[in-house]
C-alpha cells in the first residue's frame, strides 16, 4: 500500500504525524518505508533523529538525485539502527523501518516523462519489499506531488492500493484550504480523474486527518474563563458545520491528532516511554497515532457509505 501524505498549508504537523504513524506501523510488525518527498525542506531525518540526514542527505544520493537520474538507487537508511533514540537494533516483533531521505538543498523542479517513469519504477520496487510505503509530500500543490500522483496512477494491473492522507489544522482557513486541495478545480480528485481514475475510486482513496486538535472539553482548555469557553464552543460548532458542508466531516475523517506539547515544541517520534516513564507526552496522542496507523489498512474506513 502506498500512502501519500499531503496538506494545503505548511505547519500542519503533516511530517511529524506521518513519521510517527510509520514508526507505530513498524512497531505493529509491518515492513514500512518512509519517503521524504518534501524537496524544499526535507525534515524527516530530523524528526526521526537520524543525525546524518537531519536536513537531507549530503552525498547526492537522495530521492531528488534519483529522480533526476543522477544515482541509480536512492539511499536508504535503517531507522532502527541510526536513530538517536533507538537502541541500535530493531525492537522485538517490529518490522523494518527504512527512510529514503531527500537531498540537502534539493528544491523544486519541473517534471518530465523520464522522472515519472523513474518514480514509477521506484514504487514498484519498494512495493515488493514493504507492505506500507509512506510518502511525505510538501505542503500545497507542488511538482513533486504531481509527479507522485501521476506515477502512482499507473502502477500496472494488480497495482498497489494508493491512499491519500490530507492533513489540516482545525481552523476555518485550513478547512477551506484542505477542501480546495482535494475537491477544487485543480485538486487531487480532478487530477486523478484526468489521469483516468474513476471519480468515486478517487474520493474513496482520500481521507482527512485533523491535527493539533483541541476539543472544547479537553483538559488543556479547562482554565479558560467561562466567556472564552462559551465563545470557543461556538467556534468549534461553526467549524464542525463548515467541515460537514465542505465534505471534511466525520465520514471523511480518519484521524484526529490532539495538540501535544511534545509535538508543538519539538517535532519528534513519541515513544511509549515518553508517555509511561518520562510522561512528557500525552497518552491520547500515542493512541491517536496507533489508531490512525491501524486504520490505514482497514478497508471499511476507505469505503464510501
Amino acid at each position: 500500500m502506498i500512502v501519500l501524505a499531503t496538506s494545503d498549508k505548511g505547519g500542519t504537523g503533516r511530517s511529524v504525524t506521518t513519521t510517527n504513524v510509520a514508526y507505530r506501523r513498524a512497531l505493529q510488525g509491518d515492513d514500512v518505508c518512509f519517503l521524504d518527498f518534501d524537496f524544499g525542506s526535507p525534515t524527516a531525518g530530523a524528526i526521526l533523529d537520524v543525525e546524518s540526514v537531519s536536513r537531507g542527505i549530503k552525498m547526492g544520493t537522495g530521492l531528488h538525485s534519483y529522480l533526476h537520474g543522477e544515482t541509480a538507487e536512492p539511499a536508504r537508511i535503517d531507522v532502527w539502527r541510526h536513530a538517536g533514540w533507538s537502541g541500535r537494533r530493531r525492537p522485538l516483533g517490529a518490522g523494518r523501518l527504512v527512510l529514503l531521505p531527500g537531498d540537502e538543498g534539493g528544491g523544486e523542479f519541473p517534471v518530465d516523462a523520464a522522472m515519472i517513469e523513474r518514480c514509477r519504477q521506484l514504487f514498484l520496487g519498494l512495493a515488493e519489499e514493504f507492505s506500507i510505503i509512506l510518502v511525505d509530500l510538501s505542503a500545497g500543490r507542488s511538482y513533486a506531488a504531481e509527479l507522485v500522483q501521476e506515477a502512482t496512477s499507473n502502477l500496472g494491473s494488480g497495482g498497489e492500493a494508493v491512499r491519500w492522507l490530507v492533513f489540516h489544522r482545525w481552523t476555518r482557513q485550513h478547512i477551506l484550504a484542505a477542501h480546495g486541495l482535494v475537491f477544487g478545480e485543480r485538486g487531487i480528485v480532478n487530477n486523478g480523474v484526468q489521469l483516468g481514475i474513476d471519480r468515486e475510486v478517487m474520493e474513496d482513496s482520500i481521507r482527512f486527518v485533523r491535527t493539533a486538535v483541541q476539543e472544547p472539553d479537553s483538559a488543556q482548555l479547562s482554565l479558560l474563563r467561562p466567556a472564552q469557553a462559551s465563545w470557543l464552543q461556538r467556534c468549534h460548532e461553526e467549524l464542525l458545520e463548515l467541515a460537514a458542508r465542505r465534505r471534511l466531516g466525520r465520514s471523511m475523517m480518519i484521524g484526529a491528532i490532539p495538540l501535544d506539547p511534545v509535538l508543538q515544541w519539538r517535532e519528534q517520534i513519541i515513544r511509549d516511554l515518553d508517555v509511561r516513564s518520562t510522561q512528557i507526552a500525552n497518552p491520547e496522542t500515542v493512541a491517536a497515532f496507533e489508531d490512525l496507523a491501524s486504520k490505514l489498512t482497514q478497508q471499511n474506513y476507505w469505503a464510501a457509505v
Binding site: E215, L240, G249, R250, V305
Partner: peptide
Amino acid sequence: EQPDRTGKDVAQALQALGEPIEIPQ
C-alpha cells in the same frame, strides 16, 4: 442521519450501536 453532524455526546451515548457513520445502517 447525518453522521458528520452528530453531536459528540450523542455519539458517545450510542457507542453500543457503533460509530456515528454506522448508526444509520
